[in-house]
Amino acid sequence: MLVDMAVFTPWSALAGGALIGLAAGLFAVANGRIAGISGLLGSLLQSGGEGRDEKVCFLLGLTAAPLLWQVFLAMPQVHFSTAPWSLMVAGLLVGLGTRYGGGCTSGHGVCGLSRLSPRSAVATLCFMAAGFATVFVVRHLLAGT
């Protein structure tokens, strides 16, 4: 994925981060639960989960936000420099990792670290290290193959 640095502004990134923090905080205060996206989505796929309406609204808000953004400003051009199959494999591996790790970047990295959870700190270090190692292997060791 390439980001056009000519149109990147740190202010939009800061505003996005603040909105993510605000949404996670409001979700925790209103529901007493962590706003981990993989956990929310996973619980919606199971029958008989409680708080279904709130979870659906939260996830719909995540998907509606970029659509609302397009009403006011053009979306940045995104270009993936990899094959579609590798993105699917990566998505599958991330999904498996969130199940084995008991959460994802939003659950551990945003909500867990803000609560000073040692478990979330270890999980965040593990998935960041795995990401760094994956990029190194793919970009430097497998680049010529």
Rank of each mutant, 00 (worst) to 15 (best):
F80Q: 09
F80K: 09
S81I: 15
S81E: 14
S81Y: 13
T82G: 10
T82H: 08
T82W: 10
T82I: 13
T82Y: 09
A83T: 08
A83M: 10
A83E: 13
A83L: 13
P84R: 09
P84I: 13
P84N: 14
P84D: 12
W85P: 03
W85C: 06
W85N: 04
S86F: 11
S86C: 11
S86H: 12
S86D: 08
S86I: 15
S86N: 15
S86R: 10
L87D: 03
L87Q: 04
L87A: 08
L87R: 04
M88G: 15
M88I: 15
M88D: 12
M88K: 14
M88A: 11
M88H: 14
M88Y: 15
V89I: 11
V89P: 03
V89E: 02
V89N: 04
V89R: 04
A90F: 13
A90E: 06
G91I: 11
G91F: 14
G91S: 10
L92D: 04
L92H: 06
L92W: 11
L92V: 13
L93T: 09
L93P: 12
L93N: 15
V94Q: 08
V94G: 09
V94T: 10
G95A: 13
G95M: 14
L96A: 13
L96C: 10
G97E: 07
G97P: 09
G97F: 08
T98Q: 01
T98Y: 01
T98L: 00
R99I: 08
R99T: 09
R99D: 04
R99C: 06
R99Q: 09
Y100I: 15
Y100D: 06
G101F: 02
G101E: 02
G101S: 07
G102W: 00
G102M: 03
G102N: 03
G102R: 04
G102S: 05
G103M: 02
G103F: 01
G103L: 01
C104Y: 00
C104I: 00
C104G: 03
T105C: 15
T105N: 12
T105Q: 09
T105G: 12
S106H: 04
S106Y: 04
S106K: 03
S106E: 02
S106G: 06
S106T: 05
S106W: 02
S106D: 03
G107R: 04
H108Y: 04
H108I: 01
H108M: 02
G109P: 02
G109W: 00
G109A: 05
G109M: 01
G109D: 00
V110R: 00
V110T: 04
V110I: 13
C111D: 11
C111V: 10
C111L: 09
G112D: 00
L113C: 06
L113A: 05
L113M: 08
S114Y: 03
S114N: 14
S114E: 05
R115Q: 14
R115W: 05
R115L: 08
R115D: 06
L116P: 14
L116N: 12
L116S: 11
S117L: 07
S117V: 07
S117P: 08
P118T: 13
S120R: 01
S120A: 12
S120F: 00
S120P: 03
S120K: 02
A121I: 08
A121V: 15
A121R: 12
V122M: 12
V122P: 10
V122Q: 12
A123C: 12
A123S: 11
T124W: 00
T124I: 03
T124F: 01
